[in-house]
Amino acid sequence: MEYFLQQLINGVTLGSIYGLIAIGYTMVYGIVGMINFAHGDVFMVGAFMALIVYLALVAIGITFVPLALLVVLIVAMALTALYGWTVERIAYRPLRGSFRLAPLISAIGMSIFLQNYVQLAQGARVKPLPPVVPGGHQFGAAEGFVVNISNVQILIVVTTVALMAIFTVIVAKTSLGRAQRACEQDRKMASLLGVDVDRTISLTFVMGAALASVAGLMYLLYYGVVDFYIGFVAGVKAFTAAVLGGIGSLPGAMLGGLLIGLIETFWSAYFSVEYKDVAAFSILAIVLIFLPSGLLGRPEVEKV
């Protein structure tokens, strides 16, 4: 029981991180219908940005943790968003309306580029960061079992929920969200009606990258290490989450992230750590085969 509750908490934390990355996949797939293969690497860039900005703040003497984290959050979001924007501008926009495979290959190329760019610029060694947010809480001592929740875990879940709420409002209520949904439905029609399609798509990438950088910051705080290779596996899992939840659906991405986080944690806890990625990849395959529209997605009807 104790073990189970502990794993539940760990799973929810991990799931929040996957969910934040998954939103980037789901929004981009919804609007341009492509898998942004480089998104996992944008997340990795985000984690590095968070680390660098944090160290820079420490270097200039800002050591009050809440303030530092807030500044890190905002600056890392902005810098990573710039990466997201540039990736779209260079690798995807020239290929819009081109053959279906071209953007995918271009995205794989971009992913390889980003990984090696970061490796070259930052070195191949992992970067360990001592805990920034120490401490935690214990529950259940009176009932005879002990479950730990660290402050980092609380921070991750709360931040995720807050950002989720903000972005849901943006997509549901603002004109940007309306433009996004219009482009999802019919890009040509949207542009005829005066929606700036290029700008809307750019902003979608910017939003996705910003959320990925938040996930990067959370990852850094939670695990305390980053390296240039974390993007690939995290990316595939987050994509799995997006598909599981129903691609194109924001709540779906969050739900999918949560489920993938839980499955991975419980699989590692009760079966085997070595095969935890196999669990995630198998779920991806199973979901796509038996439930291709995901949990909250709209089914696709074959037109004859």
């Binding site: 690798a91 271009s106 794989i108 190329g109 971009m110 390889i112 580029f113 990984q115 090696n116 070259l120």
Partner: peptide, 8 residues
């Protein structure tokens, strides 16, 4: 890195 760039 060149390989990735050339692909794009």
């Amino acid at each position: 890195i060149t390989f990735g760039l050339v692909m794009v």
